[in-house]
Amino acid sequence: MLAFLSKRIALLAFTMLVVSALVFAAFEFTPGQVARKVLGPFATQNQVDILNEKMGLNRPVIVRYSEWLGNTLTGDLGFSTLYKTEVNSIIWDRLGNTLLLAGTAFAVIVPLSIILGIAAGMREGSILDRSISVGSIVTTSVPEFASGVFLASIFVIWLGWLPGTSSLDTGAGWSLWQQLILPVTVMVLYDLGYVVRMVRASMVEVMTRPYIRTAVLKGLSFRAVIMKHALRNAMIAPFTVILLQINYLITGVVVVEAVFAYPGFGRMLLEAALSQDVAVVEAAALFAVLVSVSTQIAGDLGYMMLNPRIRFS
């Protein structure tokens, strides 16, 4: 177990190193670009050269990369050209807001998808199964911005029950939770269907296994068969899928935060991208990848815990 963990962590470090090199290569490889962006299209080549010199951009790539990496590792994430401040001074607040949004969504998705998936998968082909399956196909097929539009039309414009924007500012009379409902719902709708289908598929598969037959023919009630024999086996395969949703949630927050003007990490990334704010995008990209790779490790560990065949091999 420990050997496995250290291997995974080494792999994580390697992945992060390559990712950082890729990010660096994408944005800072060609020296002309950064200075040109800072100065705008109307600056003369001479001005660009001077700035290059000043920023040390004409030094060898490897030197600049090591310096950049060193800065990043020591927590110096650079200066945001969009927000006109240190990246460090904005990113953490935004992350907090996003954690609230994504965390709430995740907390809804996990139990709900397991319940729906198990309910659908325990009797394949039943009316309940068909309804849940088709329902989940439809919800995952509606892009977040579209479901945002649909839900806003109903609950904001037509019924007036909820706010159309979620600035997290309670001054306008909407409580924090009221502001969270729509963004969370949109994320849940989009993501839920996928996890439900994974859990269902796994459950369907488990229910055809001979050991389920053994359990039934032992005289266990259907409920006991599901709870004691099917559930744990059915959770092994989707476990990693569920954790991988964190990866999808990162994509989700960018869209949802744009739809509802939510002041989070995703909107910061988008705004920075639209205004070519390299430092913010770099920091956000590295952070997003770190989260996604760490979840993979957690997923592998959980998988090992759930599956005695691997635990004792």
């Binding site: 001979p210 032992k218 024999h229 086996n233």
Partner: peptide
């Protein structure tokens, strides 16, 4: 089932719950 009547299966590996 499992009381007055019981069954032994082909392929014992898959007839036992792996977890």
């Amino acid at each position: 089932r499992g009381g007055r009547m019981a069954m032994v299966y082909q392929d014992p590996m898959s007839s036992l719950n792996p977890v």
